[in-house]
């Protein structure tokens, strides 16, 4: 099953709606709750990152019998140094993002620990692509 969702940068009111839909879908399909949780935590972190840092983005979800593959493609400033961004505590989040309870430099490392496969690619001035794969 293939799904696509649009995400608007700066729209904190709706941040998490895609993750919520994916969670409900995975639960309905009877996926192990522990895997559902890992997947939606990683996805939610990535979705909040689009809202916090990018202008807009698209989330592509492929739900198969034995895996879920999620690709988040955003148009935004990009990440100049991905290794630095993966380090715990490193953050470029705005005060608004911090007021929402995020921006502590924990998102990317947490996405890594909640994914079987995580690939981050970025082009400065264009945007970032994040791929998350979890196996059932």
């Amino acid at each position: 099953m293939h799904f696509e969702y649009n995400v608007e940068g700066g729209d904190f009111t709706n941040a998490g709606t895609t993750s919520s839909k994916v969670k409900k879908m995975m639960k309905q399909l009877g996926v192990d709750p522990a895997i559902v949780k890992r997947t939606v935590v990683a996805l939610y972190e990535a979705e909040v990152n689009i809202v916090a840092h990018a202008y807009r983005g698209v989330i592509y979800v492929d739900l198969e019998d034995t895996s879920v593959s999620i690709k988040l493609v955003d148009e935004g400033p990009g990440i100049p140094d991905i290794n630095q961004a993966m380090q715990k505590g490193y953050s470029t989040a705005s005060p608004q993002v911090r007021e929402m309870g995020f921006g502590a430099g924990m998102g990317l490392p947490n996405m890594q620990s909640n994914s079987d496969k995580l690939v981050v690619n970025s082009v400065v001035g264009k945007g970032t692509t994040v791929e998350i794969v979890n196996y059932f």
Binding site: F12, T13, A15, G16, S19, A34, Y44, G101, F102
Partner: peptide, 23 residues
């Protein structure tokens, strides 16, 4: 896997969303 209660002073929609994702 335990049943957790969050105690917080952060009161916005993302508090609820975070709890939704975290069960």
């Amino acid at each position: 896997d335990k049943s957790v209660m969050l105690i917080t002073g952060l009161c916005n929609t993302q508090t609820i969303r975070t709890c939704e994702m975290s069960d």
